[in-house]
Design a protein around this nucleic acid. Structure first.
Length: 859
RNA sequence: GCCGAAGUGGCGGAAUGGCAUACGCGGCGGUCUCAAACACCGCUGAGGGCAACCUCUUGUGGGUUCGAGUCCCACCUUCGGCACCA
């Protein structure tokens, strides 16, 4: 029973039939990996200007512990591309590194009592070793590890540049807070009651002074994708994420009442100033700064309770249009500036403090959320925009949000009859005269909150001094190092806050006592510029080497997971523009071309994670089938941008394909006993025909495989190589096997296979060279072959013939047959003649010489 | 909920508006073998028919077109993201 595995590992011992040795990836692959390393085959000379440069970047991994199948899925097609470009004569730079700061290391340290650094570096060592079994052509000498002070000091240095440029600032903002474990990440808040994952305490909001980067300063520039070739879905997602809205800010005043003098300004943002006359109430975000002041005494308890409740909800929950609207009246009114009408003020959680002004004028007749709220609270609904012919005062059963060109204002006083668009502008213009409104553009995009209340990240290079306030640490004192000793004391709170040696320092300005910032930077900062550092990881004096940066960036091709469509890919664009404005680089965009591949999920269809226990380890597959089979299988599984649940079913098929290639190359004249036709050409084919078939198949495959590589269609690329191998296999043992056409086809097959399955291609290539008495040179230094168009030409075409769109027959015509000839052949095909039964077609459609459709009415 | 993507044989998937199901897995039959495994050859969407062949089929329902997996409208399901996982 248990012997099956052994047999599979060493089948040659039992195989008396084979005249050549069996394909054994385990010896081949490690041998070539060592040989490539010895020859430094993949070192990139960044100063070499003799060839066009090609910077191929793949998203660097988080060192979670082990390389799983998802890493292989990301990396191996990228590696194939790197090799493909290199075979086209490019000087390819394909670096790798580790995104080494972050939460998991800290969690492991808290749990086991070790140090995040130890945990991280151990994982990195392990993953480096595993990466090398892929046979990828990484430039390891350019590796960066972001938790190394050699790297993170430049995070600090760049932060100081941004600070000087006014792109960094401090602001108070809320975090999810656990009384025992401090700030919690979203994934650390569990359950509908929102409790701490570690201690179970209910999560509170706490307002903290935190650092921000001014991403909104670049909102408009980020909306432009000029000069970069990114997939449309990503561009759309980023555009929606930035969420530019044109509209106006309008000032309402608070109305006097028996508990309040009134006269305060309540500024709202609206995209529909044309509906101002329809504003029948006003809604403030529960966090709005005026809520406390405006609330009537008898409403205080209810309002306070609602504010508390709203603060506990997640933003996704608050913005859901699905759930019933909630809110409370604060017992105060506002005055509509356009008509002096008193309207009640509410607070409701569907209005967010961080968007617009944190306050809206509610127009239930023309906004769905406002309509739902008004219906629930019995508030007035007044139509102010109507399409021609609409009864302006008829009751409405839903909000009318359509925005057709011919809608006009109604119930809007002197503005009645204006087209909605011009009415909106007129209203804003009128109010602007009284300084009560101004046209305004608002973005959904927010500034980037980069403070994290954690140890395992880049320390902020600032100190707080009683005399001088916020003082940057001078460049020459960088890096501000993380203290090496860290005691988590079993809690999630940031140990830096309890580390006196770290905490207490002197002010660089006045020399007096000062305290260090204990927050560290978001890890997305590390990944916002790492590709610059790859070029010069050891560089001192500056974050980047300007000469290398100017030559090598922007990155030509970036590959990585679609889950980064918005955040990482947006932060990187922002960072590049910010570095440009600090005079550090001279271009605008980080990545010229982008490909977002899909994600490999666990077998259960869920994201792979250790906690779910669905992580797939490739090591066993590699030792059983070899790295080449695993690489090829991952490419063959499906379209690369699709991803999907992991299943190793079918890897045997890819392995069999490589076995066939092995046999084709090393034993072209052998014959399979299971094949009755072995050694015979297909019926009716001459030796010349066979040569034509082989050459045609090889060059058509080359033509198609080339475009598949260029378009990242790896699955069909592998399928076409399989077809070519099947064709060659069919001719194995015939008179044409081993001849010049055969040899040409085999060479093409190996060259096309080399980027995807580098080891077997190298092995077979070297054996062919040796057999031919030629000196060895790596297949990975060979040039990509050129298609011979004369070989791909065909003599005849098969034309499908349809009647009324249904396939009824096929005719074979000469390749250069004209339309008349094709039509004559189609109409005289036996089955078509029978179907026509003497009738004349009403129409005959020629689809560009690919198909004929005969249209027969009443047919 | 909002934004983005995807639904095609038993399974992974292929298909510039033009032959649906390439390639592979699995299954069935065979060759080789004392036997098994490996390898190889053939068949394999569903239904009907002795057969030639016919009908149906790309998540659901409509539409555009000579012709729709592909384009348009509505809906259903699944996946990714929603700002402290990376």
């Amino acid at each position: 029973m248990t012997d099956t595995a052994d047999t599979a590992e060493d089948p040659a011992a039992h195989d008396s039939r084979s005249r050549v040795e069996r394909y054994d990836p385990s010896t081949i692959e490690s041998r070539w990996q060592q040989e490539w390393a010895r020859l430094r085959l993949y070192d990139t000379d960044l100063t070499d200007t003799s060839r066009p440069k090609h910077y191929l970047l793949t998203m660097y991994p988080y060192p979670s512990g082990d390389l799983h199948i998802g890493h292989w899925y990301i990396v191996t097609p990228s590696d194939a591309l790197a090799r493909f470009r290199r075979m086209h004569g490019d000087n390819v730079f394909f670096p790798i590194g580790f995104d080494a700061f972050g939460l998991p290391a800290e969690n492991a340290a808290i749990k086991s009592g070790g140090h995040p650094y130890t945990w991280t570096m151990r994982n990195i060592e392990n993953m480096r070793r595993q990466f090398k079994t892929m046979g990828a052509m990484f430039s390891w000498e350019h590796e960066v590890v972001t938790c190394d002070p050699m790297y993170y000091r430049w995070n600090q240095w760049l932060f100081l540049r941004f600070l000087e440029k006014g792109l960094a600032y401090r602001k108070k903002s809320p975090v999810d807070w656990c009384p025992n474990d401090g700030t919690l990440a979203r994934e650390q808040v569990e359950g509908v009651d929102r409790h701490c994952w570690r201690c179970g305490a209910l999560v509170e909001k706490r307002d903290l002074e935190q650092w921000y980067l001014r991403t909104t300063a670049y909102a408009d520039e980020l909306l432009s994708f000029e000069g970069i070739d990114w997939p449309e879905p990503i561009r759309i997602q980023q555009t929606n994420w930035i969420g530019r809205s044109e509209g106006a800010e309008i000032d309402f005043a608070t109305a006097p009442s028996d508990h309040h003098v009134g006269g305060e300004t309540l500024r709202v943002f609206t995209t529909r100033p044309d509906t101002l006359f329809g504003a029948t109430f006003m809604v403030l975000a529960p966090e709005h700064e005026l809520v406390e002041r405006l609330t009537a005494p008898d409403r205080r308890d209810e309002v306070a309770a609602y504010v508390e409740q709203a603060r506990r909800r997640t933003e996704i929950d608050r913005l859901s249009t699905d759930r019933d609207k909630t809110g409370v009246s604060i017992g105060a009114d506002a005055i509509n500036p356009v008509n002096g009408e008193r309207i009640p003020i509410f607070i409701a959680d569907y209005v967010l403090a961080g968007y617009g002004t944190g306050a809206i004028m509610a127009v239930p007749a023309h906004d769905e959320r406002d309509f739902a709220f008004a219906t629930q609270f019995g508030l007035a609904i007044r139509r102010v925009v109507a399409a021609p012919g609409t009864d302006a005062d008829a009751p409405m059963d839903g909000a009318y949000v359509a925005h057709a060109a011919d809608e006009r204002l109604v119930n809007s006083g002197e503005f009645d009859g204006l087209l909605a668009d011009e009415g909106g502008r007129a209203i804003v213009a009128r109010l602007a005269e009284q300084n009560a409104a101004e046209p305004k553009v608002t973005y959904r995009l927010r500034d980037w909150l980069i403070s994290r209340q954690r140890y395992w990240g880049t320390p902020f290079p600032v100190v707080y001094c009683e005399t001088d306030g916020v003082v940057p640490v001078p460049d020459e004192d960088l890096p501000v190092r993380l203290p090496e000793d860290v005691d988590y004391e079993g809690s999630g709170t940031n140990p830096l806050t309890k580390d006196d040696a770290f905490l207490h320092t002197t002010c660089p300005r006045c020399g007096g006592p000062a305290t260090r910032e204990t927050d560290t930077m978001d890890t997305f900062i590390d990944s916002s510029w790492y590709w610059f550092r790859y070029l010069s990881p050891e560089k001192t004096g500056s974050a980047v080497d300007r000469g290398l940066v100017d030559r090598w960036t922007p990155v030509d091709q970036y590959t990585g997971g679609a889950e980064h469509a918005v955040m990482h890919l947006m932060y990187s664009r922002f960072w590049t523009k910010a570095m440009r404005d600090c005079g550090l680089i001279g271009h605008d965009e980080p990545f010229l071309r982008l490909f977002n591949q899909g994600q490999i999920l666990g077998a259960d269809g869920e994201r792979m994670s250790k906690s779910r226990g669905n992580v797939q380890d490739p090591d066993e597959l590699v030792s059983r089938y070899g790295a080449d089979s695993v690489r090829l299988f991952l490419m063959f599984m499906g379209p690369w941008d699709q991803g999907g649940p992991w299943s190793p079913t079918g890897i045997g098929g890819v392995h069999r394909f490589l076995n066939r290639v092995w046999t084709i190359v090393l034993d072209p004249t052998g014959q399979e006993p299971g094949d009755k036709d072995a050694g015979r050409l297909p019926a009716g084919e001459s030796e010349d025909d066979a040569i034509g078939t082989l050459r045609g198949a090889a060059h058509r495959t080359l033509r198609d495989v080339t475009t598949d590589y260029e378009a990242f269609r790896f699955n069909t690329m592998v399928a076409k190589l399989m077809e070519l191998a099947n064709t060659l296999f069919r001719y194995r043992g015939t008179v044409s096997a081993g001849g010049p056409a055969w040899d040409e086809a085999v060479d093409l097959l190996l060259l096309m296979l080399a980027p995807a399955a580098p080891h077997i291609a190298e092995e077979l290539w070297s054996r062919r060279l040796a057999a031919a008495g030629r000196r060895w040179e790596s297949i990975h230094l060979a040039s990509w072959p050129a298609v011979d168009e004369t070989a791909t030409a065909v003599a005849t075409r098969e034309i499908p013939v349809q009647v009324n769109g249904k396939l009824r027959d096929k005719v074979i015509v000469a390749a250069d047959a004209d339309q008349t000839t094709v039509e004559r052949a189609a109409l005289s095909a036996p089955r078509i003649v029978a179907l026509l039964d003497g009738r004349t077609p009403d129409r005959v459609i020629h689809a560009g010489g690919r198909l004929v459709n005969i249209v027969l009415r009443d047919g």
